[in-house]
Computed example of a mutant assay.
Amino acid sequence: MGKTAVIVIDMINTYDHADAELLLSSVHEVVPAVVRLVERAREQDVPVIYVNDNFGEWRSHHGEILDQALSGAHADLVEPLRPDERSLFVVKARHSIFYETPLAYLLTQLGVDRVVLCGQVTEQCVLYSALDAHIRHLGVVVPRDAVAHIHRDLADAALRMMERNMAARIGTADDVSLSG
């Protein structure tokens, strides 16, 4: 049997970007579910990997990204999801968590064959990452209550596409099995 990893996408965020106002209400709704999922993963020794945008700051590293987000206007959305000492962190520059990042190699090294994707944005980064995971023959799980959206109709369509076209399991954060 393989191993599962929980991947937290773009939740270390200043929300100082286009579409942030449209996104924020959804983020407020999903943070509790993401927190529960991450806490459960940590309790069960399931790898938690943060894959986060570098916001075009090519010299930045995860500590700087976290510090910047925690000093921003929406630190209340970041603080509950702060990476702990066991969390892994991958910096990305584009939508997919796999695009020109070492994530695929990291997952192979960890023996991971199934990913639980949570974070933002459902109809963008989560969708593209689910497709890239599927292409890499990874099992994909997306808890609908742990992914934030900009446009609900597009998010609903994206979740249907992930389920239908990528064999993703769509459920809730509390129902996700982390044992494979």
Rank of each mutant, 00 (worst) to 15 (best):
T101K: 08
L159Q: 07
S60W: 01
Q44A: 15
V51Y: 03
V147Y: 02
L106T: 13
G63L: 07
N54K: 04
V91R: 08
A133F: 02
M161D: 09
I135A: 15
V90W: 02
N13V: 00
M166H: 15
L103M: 13
E100A: 07
A148Y: 03
R152F: 05
E79T: 13
A20R: 01
F89D: 01
K3P: 01
H151I: 06
V8D: 00
I7R: 02
L66D: 01
N13I: 00
V51R: 01
L37P: 03
V176N: 06
I9F: 00
L131V: 10
E163P: 01
I97M: 14
V116Y: 08
D174P: 04
L22M: 12
L110T: 08
L81I: 07
G72M: 07
A148F: 06
K3A: 10
A167K: 13
D67C: 02
E43Q: 13
I49L: 05
S179R: 15
Y50L: 01
A130W: 02
L154P: 03
V48C: 10
L178Y: 14
H151K: 08
G2W: 09
I170N: 07
A69I: 02
D10S: 02
D10Q: 05
M1D: 06
V90K: 02
V126E: 03
H149T: 05
N52M: 03
R42C: 11
H151F: 12
E57K: 12
V91N: 02
L127V: 00
V91I: 15
V34I: 15
H149F: 15
H95K: 11
S71C: 07
L178I: 11
E100W: 02
P83M: 09
V46C: 12
Y15I: 00
G56L: 10
A148C: 14
D132G: 05
R169D: 11
D132E: 15
A133N: 03
A5F: 05
A146T: 08
L107I: 13
V46F: 08
L66Y: 01
P102S: 13
M166R: 04
H28G: 10
A167G: 06
D153S: 13
S25Y: 07
D175Q: 15
H61M: 05
Q44C: 08
V142H: 04
M162D: 06
D84Q: 11
V31C: 10
V142F: 04
E21T: 07
A33N: 14
T101E: 11
H137S: 15
R169H: 10
T122G: 06
L110Q: 07
A33W: 05
D113R: 14
I97A: 15
L159G: 07
Q68K: 13
R136W: 04
G139N: 11
T101D: 10
M161F: 08
E64Y: 08
L22Q: 14
E29M: 12
A75V: 10
M161Q: 13
A146R: 06
D84Y: 09
V48I: 12
M166A: 13
L22P: 00
R40T: 12
L70C: 09
V48K: 04
A168E: 03
A130E: 02
G139S: 12
R160F: 08
L107W: 10
P143T: 10
R160T: 11
G72H: 06
H134N: 15
